[in-house]
Simulated scan of single mutants.
Amino acid sequence: MRQNPSFAMTDVAELRRLVDLHPWATLVSSTEDGLIASHYAVLLDDERDDLTIVGHVGKPDDLIHGLGSRELLVVIQGPHGYISPSWYGDAASVPTWNFVSVHLSGVPELLSTEENLAVLDRLVARFESRKTDPRLMWETPNDAAFIERLERGTVGFRLTPTRVVAKRKLSQNKTPEVVENVIAELSGDGPYASAELAAEMRRAADARTRP
């Protein structure tokens, strides 16, 4: 992802927030057969306060990616959406796309069986927790034998990125009046409305005006 200093995100707390809110990631590796991409959920490492993430892949994706021996690029896609030139008023303009994205790169370390089980347990708990009747990984009808077979079909990893590229392109190059109008359009009921993107723009706009 080409970086533009005007749109760069560098605040670790903000980056952690984006990763936590958007755990469905794209994993990209360069192999002898060309580029390969897979899609898995990742979590922030709960024992760290940096951008270290943990996750797993299903076998044989670990071999395809060379997990643990080659660089892995993890792409986190935050809110994004179409921005109509009509939202800019009468000024000459063209359509664009606003978005927030975080790229984490590094060589991941492989997790032990116990560590992988803990990550799988966390993943299930994270998403089941939104249900009124969550069914956690170790609860019946699952038993230990089933969970152990499940774990053997996966490979867990921890990635402490050695390179981070994060971009928040949210109309920062427009006047405050235009930004407010774009937020209003995204907050409406039109075909390109996006409450999530509007909220992200509001957060970025408020941060720019905060003393």
Score class of each variant (00 low, 15 high):
Leu123Val: 12
Ala144Asp: 12
Leu170Asp: 09
Asp143Leu: 02
Asn116Phe: 04
Leu170Cys: 09
Lys167Cys: 13
Thr96Met: 08
Asn116Ala: 11
Arg168Pro: 05
Pro134His: 08
Val100Phe: 02
Leu110Tyr: 04
Leu136His: 07
Val124Gln: 04
Leu150Arg: 01
Lys167Asp: 13
Pro134Asp: 08
Thr162Lys: 15
Thr160Gly: 06
Glu114Lys: 10
Val100His: 03
Val165Thr: 14
Thr132Lys: 14
Leu170His: 10
Arg149Gln: 06
Val124Met: 05
Phe157Tyr: 11
Trp138Pro: 00
Glu115Cys: 10
Glu148Ala: 09
Asp143Phe: 03
Ser129Pro: 01
Ser105His: 11
Ala145Trp: 08
Leu117Glu: 10
Thr162Ile: 15
Leu150Phe: 04
Arg163Gly: 06
Gly106Lys: 12
Ala144Trp: 13
Glu115His: 12
Val119Phe: 04
Glu109Lys: 14
Glu148Lys: 09
Leu111Ser: 06
Lys169Asp: 05
Arg122Ile: 01
Val164Ser: 04
Phe157Thr: 01
Pro141Met: 05
Asn98Ile: 07
Ser112Asp: 11
Ala118Gln: 13
Val119Trp: 08
Gly156Ile: 08
Ala91Asn: 00
Gly156Leu: 08
Trp97Gly: 01
Arg126Ile: 03
Glu139Trp: 05
Leu104His: 01
Leu120Arg: 03
Val124Asn: 05
Leu120Ser: 08
Thr175Met: 13
Thr113Ala: 14
Pro108His: 12
Ala118Met: 13
Asp133Thr: 15
Glu139Gln: 11
Thr96Phe: 03
Leu110Met: 12
Phe127Val: 01
Arg135Tyr: 04
Ser112Ile: 12
Asn142Asp: 02
Ala91Met: 03
Ala118Leu: 14
Asp121Cys: 06
Arg126Ala: 06
Asn142Arg: 10
Leu123Asn: 02
Arg158Trp: 08
Arg168Phe: 14
Pro134Ala: 10
Arg130Asp: 01
Leu110Gly: 02
Glu128Tyr: 01
Asn98Met: 10
Ala125Leu: 10
